[in-house]
Amino acid sequence: MDLSAINPVLLIASLMVAATPLLLAAIGELVVERAGVLNLGVEGMMIVGAISGFAIAVETGSPWLGFLGAAVGGALLSLLFVILTQVALANQVASGLSLTLFGLGLSSLMGQRYVGVKPPQMPDIHIPGLSDLPVLGPILFSHDLMLYLGVGIIAAVWAVLKYTRAGLILRAVGENHDAAHALGYKVVRIRIAAILFGGACAGLGGAYISLIRVPQWTEGMTAGVGWIALALVVFASWKPWRVLLGAYLFGGVTVVQLNLQAAGVAIPVEYLAMSPYLVTILVLVILSADKSSAPASLGRIFHASH
């Protein structure tokens, strides 16, 4: 065992890469939940985003078109959730589960031709001067653009929710859909928009795994990240910046356990690999006592029958 082989600067830099898929999926789900909808299909939308982004990037040779395709793929799958929960008024828990089961199957069907293929590379940015700084350079100024875009989406969601009228309406719909309906807001349309946004973000998160983090396609490669993203929204008490904090925390656990595996610590690999899931449970236990910040209409079905 040689812990000195672990470089703290590289550790932080790779932590940010590991956190980005989580962060993207979680911020999307946060918007969905703030609108009062619980979509448990994040894992399914992520894996479909992962393969659609991968396939399009390989076929076109452009990672950017790949990410665009991933967002569209994730949103298309979430459209099925829209049909089930907003049109057919089905139970949201069951619908979300069906989305995940269907998405896992669909992705492995779509991905058959792409096993073992290498995707086009996404270059890391290089800002002369800044990227060459010791310590700060590799941590802050030498990533791919998607990583910065992820942080940008968080900032945008925060600003929209806090300072704009659209954000206020979204929150009103999530807190009390009957009152929002009485005020004349189109509850269903607003929720549909939120769900599609959540699907697109989850798709981006999935594609970040298949195009940048790994980068290749294997079946079921999201390995529960979508579910951890759901837990992360609870962890963040539905507040955008806390999603960033939480994602970096989970990214940190993932990267540290991978580094410990590589360093040959005396703990068996399997037990290290369990750690992100166990930490998720632990965090849920610590934070679940306070449910006051959850949107009041979360998971309830809305039908304008009155």
């Binding site: 089930l84 089905a90 069951a94 069906s98 089961l101 269907f102 199957g105 669909l106 492995s108 069907l109």
Partner: peptide, 16 residues
């Protein structure tokens, strides 16, 4: 995987 999709589809139609 086609069968997996098939099974997932069944749940969709049922819920809808």
């Amino acid at each position: 995987a086609a069968i997996q999709v098939f099974q997932g589809m069944l749940l969709f139609f049922l819920l809808a």
